[in-house]
């Protein structure tokens, strides 16, 4: 059975999504937005995993994706909780104001 869409497209799309995520993390100052960019990067990785799984008819890739999604959910829970906590103390979620660890 031939795949409906060639794997190369998935990979390219995955790379584009990943770069968008990276740029989002690097450029954005709002913690929520950075968070969402991180999610984008995760999903980009998921996408390439699924694509390669399909190509090699190996369910391992898809399996890992489930794990990633689960862990991402957990991460979101923790991350959002952190953001809420930061907001409570700083009254802001601007990531550039969180520079207490500066050397």
């Amino acid at each position: 059975m031939q795949p409906a869409v060639a794997t190369e497209y998935f990979v390219v799309l995955s790379a584009v999504l990943f770069i968008m995520g990276v740029l989002g993390v690097l450029v954005r100052r709002n913690a929520i937005m950075i968070f969402m960019s991180v999610e984008l990067m995760l999903n980009a990785a998921n996408l390439s995993l699924v694509a390669f799984a399909q190509q090699w008819s190996n369910m391992g890739g898809q399996l890992i994706v489930f794990f990633v999604i689960t862990i991402a959910a957990a991460e979101v829970a923790v991350g959002l909780a952190l953001i809420v906590a930061i907001f409570r103390t700083k009254k802001s979620i601007d990531i550039d104001e969180l520079n207490a660890m500066q050397g």
Binding site: I95, N99, M101, Q102, G103
Partner: peptide, 8 residues
């Protein structure tokens, strides 16, 4: 000084 404190 490497530790800038900026997430990015």
């Amino acid at each position: 000084t490497v530790q800038t404190g900026y997430v990015r």
